[in-house]
């Protein structure tokens, strides 16, 4: 009995360290942010401790609601694009020889090493009228003259998709490579073409992975604040951009904190909803 207890203690000790770090570096700042969201802003200065709901009251303005809806819309759109390209891509990738797979994964990892700033500026150059790919298309005779594709909504979507795509693939890779190939082969012997096998077996079997991928990209895009600024017009700015703007340029930390809390709550609610729908669909089938 005592031997058992002795063995248990160090195990909890090991867990204690990450718990402590998480508390100090995550829960602490988060608590401060929640507190600040109720503080009173001192115009021209900083803020002072108070308890007022004025920051939250500002949400009920058309401008704020518009940006919230836009942020959700962009995040959902990019998540759907990333997963609907990334899932078939990763599925085909796992069917390739091991060496080819490793090369692709190394390439995707190297894309991950690029910061959001570099990605944003590279795309803004590539999509520009003066130095972008449209020059090549005009030279090849596919276009009359070079055009400017940035800033704009499609440019912003492209940049965000580019940024989130490697994460999508890396997230879908483990479940897809663990998928028993005999499942697909069984479908083939029962008369399903490769395409029908993909949609009637591979996709439904991996629905949890697809859902997880969608949620991850959604959350990831919600937090992106540089690409919308560089590749999008002001009317395309997501809530994250507004938060940055309020916190850094307007020095309105209480309002920025309130927006951050609200964004977090809204996205958690949406994720819970998605998971709920996913589970109900799982029970039904």
């Amino acid at each position: 009995m005592t031997a058992g207890t002795n063995r248990e203690t160090p195990r909890y000790g090991v867990l204690g360290y990450p718990t402590l770090m998480l508390g100090v570096f995550f829960l602490g700042p988060f608590g401060i942010m929640v507190a600040v969201s109720f503080f009173h802003r001192v115009p021209g200065g900083f803020y002072e401790p108070a308890f007022e709901l004025a920051n939250y009251a500002r949400f009920f303005t058309p401008l704020f609601v518009e940006h919230l809806v836009l942020s959700m819309y962009v995040a959902v759109l990019v998540a759907v694009i990333c997963v609907s390209i990334g899932f078939p891509f990763t599925y085909l990738l796992t069917r390739l020889p091991r060496r080819t797979q490793v090369l692709w994964l190394v390439f995707l990892l190297s894309v991950l090493s690029l910061s959001e700033v570099i990605v944003a500026f590279s795309w803004s150059v590539l999509l520009s009228r003066t130095a972008g790919v449209s020059n090549l298309l005009a030279w090849a005779g596919l276009m009359d003259k070079p055009a400017s594709w940035t800033p704009g909504f499609p440019a912003m979507l492209l940049g965000l998709t580019y940024l989130a795509f490697p994460y999508t693939v890396l997230m879908l890779y483990p479940p897809l490579s663990r998928l028993d190939p005999e499942l697909g082969e069984a479908a083939r012997t029962m008369g399903a073409s490769p395409l029908r096998t993909f949609f009637t077996v591979v996709v439904p079997v991996l629905r949890p992975a697809i859902l997880a991928g969608l949620i991850m990209v959604f959350v990831f895009v919600l937090g992106a604040y540089l690409i919308p600024q560089i590749l999008g017009r002001p009317q395309h700015w997501t809530l994250s951009v507004l938060i940055t703007d309020q916190a850094i340029y307007q020095s309105n930390l209480p309002f920025a904190a309130a927006m951050a809390v609200f964004l977090l709550a809204a996205s958690l609610g949406l994720i819970a909803l998605t998971l709920g729908i996913g589970r109900r669909a799982g029970l039904r089938s």
Binding site: D180, E182, E185, A186, P204, S285
Partner: peptide, 9 residues
């Protein structure tokens, strides 16, 4: 099949 390959969904 060896794994039986029954569709879990």
């Amino acid at each position: 099949f060896q794994s039986l390959a029954l569709f879990p969904h």
